[in-house]
Design a protein around this nucleic acid. Sequence first.
DNA 1: GCAGTCAAGGGGCACC
DNA 2: GGTGCCCCTTGACTGC
Length: 272
Amino acid sequence: MSCNGMASSFFPSGFMFQLQAPCEDDHQLASPVSSLIPTNLHHLRGVAPATGKRSASFSGAETCEEANGDDELSDDASLAGEKKRRLNVEQVRTLEKSFELGNKLEPERKMQLAVALGLRPRQVAIWFQNRRARWKTKQLEKDYDVLRRQFDAIKAENEALQAHNKKLQTEVLALRGREASDLINLNKETEGSCSNRSENSSEINLDISRTSVAERSCPPLQILPYFQSVRPADPDCSKVENDAPEGSFSNLLCSIGDQSAFWPWPDHHNFH
DNA sequence: GCAGTCAAGGGGCACC
DNA sequence: GGTGCCCCTTGACTGC
């Protein structure tokens, strides 16, 4: 294998001369993606990185042959007797810029980057794979944070609704308690003043308990329409009713006794 | 010593 | 079957 490999054809002669001086090449750069490779990479090789010892010992492929070789042909040879080393700062920076332009590595761009950075193409491919994995991890973390915030917001809203619901339930129970006490008092009053009432009237009172507070403020006459309809027929009975408990059975008998007021045939027109 | 990071190995899978 | 990608793991390295 020689320095005149396929990858070297992607770069201008000046660029390649600066990048890989031992491998002179006069091929012209013809790749449409050549813009993905920074042009100031001549200092990448053999220069100590700016951030200390972490990447000082490794610059990828050490020879032009390794840089231009295929993955299968150069991997074992390049790493023979050499431990793994980190990429230097400029190599990572260049790869990051290329990654920002596209996280999928086309074969052409892989070769360009490999030649430009003095790495084997497989190293570039592996770096992109690992970079995609790191990007995915960060993306998952971001998604998790978004979902977490949404969950917290919904949870807070749910708790507020539950507290409001509990408050409303307490109010309902309080109102029902007041209704029960009012009903007891009402029953005591009615029982004391309407001793002749039948059990049916008690049922009517029970029905009252099911009405609202506003409805209970109305007089019992509205709840006993039958008696109400009868009263105009007999002023006496009406008088008695005002004195006696309203809707009492005696009032009913009194009204029935006056048939002229109760029966609907023409005679009852006399009342008008 | 240990945890974290990163380059690289290797298996599995899809696509051609 | 070859290739590339994803995923998980390994091993080297670093900072504390």
